[in-house]
Structures are given as structure tokens and as C-alpha cells.
């Protein structure tokens, strides 16, 4: 465990709280992609299968896994019930089928081992790297976003971005290298780069998030 990883995990945790807070304070899920949330739930459910047999390995990991699965399920529940009037299927249209299919293909081609758990783990890593695309696509279509939504996206993107120095640290200091997670994590961070740039140049300077 190193500082980058803890900060990354905390950033992930904070992002979920910001999202729930956004829905509560605006009483709406406007601007949030249901498709992205469903993809994330798939990511957590396939990656954290080991929660059933590694519960004693690390209380930190196990509790974080539970929080990620439950809070994402709760977010989806809220979006489909309490706040469903703000759902806009006309805007949230990204072809998620291709993302799931592509992640599935990569998982079958490059798992560490050919076991159900390892293939699903690899699938979850690849799917996570692109799970934000429906959300970013939606943002592009609307051309603007509420500030609190951009804080959510920043915190979520920072999670994987902070894992990159964590992987470098582990590689140099612990001789530990995880090529699948590292390559997928770099792709994921690159997908966020445009968003990070606009967040930095606009939102952090007190301006509204608007696409040029």
C-alpha cells in the first residue's frame, strides 16, 4: 500500500459521495448517464467476485469492494425510481453493446489464467477502462454540465490516474508489475484527458463547464 493508491481509492470513494450528493441536492439525475452506471456495476460485480473467499485477506479491500458494489447499485436504483423523470434516453445513447463485447473479447484473449474468475477479472479491467464513454458522450451532446457533476467526473477519473504512479512505484520498489491493469488504466486516463483539460481551464477557475 502506498500513498498514490490510498489517494486513488479515496478519490473513488469521494466521487460516489459527490454523485449521490448531486442527485440529492438537485433532486435530479440530469446529466448522469445510466448506461455508464450500469457498466460500472458490471465492472464491480465481475471484479469483486473474490469478496466471498478473500474476506479475511484485507478488511480495507473487502469493505471498499462492498461499498463500490452497493453504492453503485443504490445509484442505479435511485436513477430508475426516485429520479427517473430526469432520465433522458434520447441523449444517453452510446452503443454500450460494443464496449461490453470489446472488453469480453480482450478478456478472452488476454487473461492471466484461463479460469472463470481470471477471465472475469480481466473483463472488468477492460470494461472499466471504457465504462465512462457513454457519460462523456452524453456530456458532449449536451455541451455543458453542472459544476457538481464535473467534480464527480474529476474524482472518478483521478482514481485511475492516481493508480498510474502507484503502478510505477510498485514496479520500481516492489518488482510488481500488472500489465493488464496498467495498460487499461493508461487508456482510461487518456480517455479522460480532454475532460481534465476543460475541468482545469474552466471549472477550477470558477467558470461553467462548457464545451467549445
Amino acid at each position: 500500500m502506498n500513498l498514490f493508491r490510498i489517494l486513488g481509492d479515496l478519490s473513488h470513494l469521494v466521487s460516489i459521495f459527490i454523485l449521490l450528493q448531486k442527485m440529492r441536492s438537485t433532486r435530479s439525475c440530469a446529466g448522469i448517464s445510466l448506461r455508464t452506471q450500469i457498466l460500472y456495476l458490471m465492472v464491480y460485480c465481475t471484479r469483486y467476485l473474490d469478496i466471498f473467499w478473500t474476506f479475511n485477506a484485507s478488511l480495507y479491500n473487502s469493505s471498499m469492494k462492498l461499498v463500490f458494489i452497493l453504492s453503485t447499485a443504490y445509484t442505479i436504483y435511485l436513477m430508475r425510481t426516485v429520479y427517473k423523470t430526469a432520465l433522458d434516453p434520447q441523449i444517453d445513447t452510446f452503443a454500450t453493446y460494443y464496449l461490453v463485447g470489446g472488453a469480453g473479447l480482450l478478456a478472452v484473449l488476454f487473461p492471466y489464467k484461463y479460469t472463470v474468475y481470471e477471465v472475469l477479472w480481466s473483463f472488468s479491467i477492460w470494461l472499466e477502462s471504457v465504462a465512462i464513454l457513454p457519460q462523456l458522450f452524453m456530456l458532449q451532446r449536451t455541451g455543458e454540465a453542472e459544476t457538481i457533476t464535473t467534480h464527480y467526473l474529476f474524482a472518478l477519473g483521478a482514481y485511475r490516474a492516481l493508480y498510474i504512479p502507484n503502478w510505477l512505484y510498485r514496479w520500481f520498489l516492489e518488482g510488481h508489475f500488472d500489465p493488464i491493469a496498467t495498460v487499461a488504466g493508461i487508456i482510461q486516463t487518456l480517455l479522460y484527458s480532454d475532460f481534465f483539460y476543460i475541468y482545469y481551464t474552466k471549472v477550477l477557475k470558477g467558470k461553467k463547464f462548457e464545451l467549445p
Binding site: R5, D9, H12, D50, A57, S58, N61, M64, K65, F68, Y112, K113, E118, W121, Y163, N166, H176, D178, I180, A181
Partner: peptide
């Protein structure tokens, strides 16, 4: 061993 160790991250 290597693959298992990889999964100690979230």
C-alpha cells in the same frame, strides 16, 4: 502467484 498478487488492488 503472480496473477493473485495482481488482484490486491481495487
Amino acid at each position: 502467484k503472480k496473477a493473485e498478487k495482481a488482484h490486491d488492488e481495487l
